[in-house]
Amino acid sequence: MKRKIELYGRLRDAGLGSSVVIDAPKPATARQALSLLKSAFGPKAALLAGCVLATDDEVLSSSDELPSGRLALLPPVCGG
């Protein structure tokens, strides 16, 4: 199943645009999605260190099943 993953922060400089599309099994865990993202990032996969997947409402743990709806890949944060 095709899932669009939005990219933020340093991930926007990976040369992949503002989002990537992965072909994830259904159901799939966040861990599986991160593994697919590693492949999508190819030589830029080091940018994924410390990244997590999140919905509009919460950060997903690696064992969480990917819910339907908006998904974002979030690098370590530094607001304020």
């Binding site: 922060g9 340093r10 990244c51 919460e58 950060v59 370590p76 530094c78 607001g79």
Partner: peptide, 29 residues
């Protein structure tokens, strides 16, 4: 905010270059 709000900052320097600042990894709350 610094620990858990999904915000990122990129500094732009006088030489024309820029850099995303390192941060704090998020965890499910």
């Amino acid at each position: 905010i610094k620990r858990r709000v999904p915000v990122w900052k990129k500094e732009h320097y006088d030489k024309g270059d820029g850099r995303w600042l390192a941060g704090c990894a998020l965890h499910r709350s």
